[in-house]
Design a protein around this nucleic acid. Sequence first.
DNA 1: TAGTATTCGTGATAATTTTCACAAATGCTA
DNA 2: TAGCATTTGTGAAAATTATCACGAATACTA
Lengths: 225, 225
Amino acid sequence: MERVISIPKPTLERLPLYYRRLLQWREEKVSIVSSADIGKNLGIDSAQVRRDLTYFGAVGRPGIGYKVEELISYLGELLGINNVNEAIIVGVGNLGRAICSYPGFAPYGLSIVAFFDIDPQIVGTKIRGHEVFHVNDLIHIVKRLKIQIGIITVPAREAQKVADQMVAGGIRAIWNFAPTRLHVPEEVIIRSEDLAVGLATLSHYLVREDLSERAEGLDRGISGS
Amino acid sequence: MERVISIPKPTLERLPLYYRRLLQWREEKVSIVSSADIGKNLGIDSAQVRRDLTYFGAVGRPGIGYKVEELISYLGELLGINNVNEAIIVGVGNLGRAICSYPGFAPYGLSIVAFFDIDPQIVGTKIRGHEVFHVNDLIHIVKRLKIQIGIITVPAREAQKVADQMVAGGIRAIWNFAPTRLHVPEEVIIRSEDLAVGLATLSHYLVREDLSERAEGLDRGISGS
DNA sequence: TAGTATTCGTGATAATTTTCACAAATGCTA
DNA sequence: TAGCATTTGTGAAAATTATCACGAATACTA
């Protein structure tokens, strides 16, 4: 139905796993890897790896494998990492702070350029050298800095209001950590991280552990090895 | 190949969404909902909702719908929520603290009963009324309290070591927030939350936004509405 | 150069998940 | 009770994703 070939969602989710492992290999001066190497390392079928890589436009050489440097470059392009992403974050509680300092982002070029909160105790203080602004200034600042990504780490009941303001400021992608569903115009992209999903599936499997059956799945999912 | 009918993974991921919304309905004194109601609210096809609910063992009445209270009870059972889950958390940085205070868990009966860290500055201090222990005491305490769930919020390079200790202490399920792949015995369940996956997919879609094609997906995924 | 061992790329197949569509069940109204 | 409007539960079809399996490309060795 679609003429544009889109990357399957599961493939997209594996992409960061590939990327992170490749960075490690580069660090270790490994210059070429095979789909089997990648697969064994990440617990993914090697045919799956090859299929994924072709989506990314990567080209390997039979009998040899893929050039690490080249793959990194391809994936980086696909992830929009090669150009820095500027973001703002609203809600500077523990979760907000945690996200700011999450080391996993380092390779992804995400740069948080402004912090917002509503708590007068927090507004005006500094975090990692940046002043925390009041949410009321959000629209203005976002417009001025032409920010594209907004991160929401406020309580669920505030989240929609914050999202509305982000949209009003022209933000095009929202990363939502509040456990609630947000309504935004169609052109705005939303990704919700729902920690309860993780907890729920874990505890479900725990409940079921007496049954021998267990799902496979990997980093995003449950695994038994 | 499996005789045991297992719940599809995507269904499992939707389960907490159902659960949370149902709690809201109960709060609002709504006693009966139809699959269409649920679907419209969560952006899931109503047939999908019905299919999912049958996996959960729920039974609705044609022409009427499902009893909210009954569904909550079924889902709660499936999630192991009805009996409290005790967990420990290792790594009391921002992320660890954020998880402890994440409001989304409230309905899930997760109870964090001990905190661990390696930083002497933190060990011995109190968090939410609980003393923070040194990681060296982990095995002992976990064994003694018979804890089943361990949460890892330490830097990636420490994560494997922590996982090993958890396993040694008899923990059966690990929720890993460190951006690395853990190796554990087959009987231990692992779920890794990789925040970079979220960031990566978000920024990917941002890069692609000029293409009209866009994935659908909902709370766990990207959506344009 | 010929032979062997790798490894990619991909058509075909299998497995999984979603959606369609409709019979059957239920309540409501008159 | 009969007729109508809902809504479930589920076979069957469609769509999506994962795996198999093999020809072709490449490097290496003798």
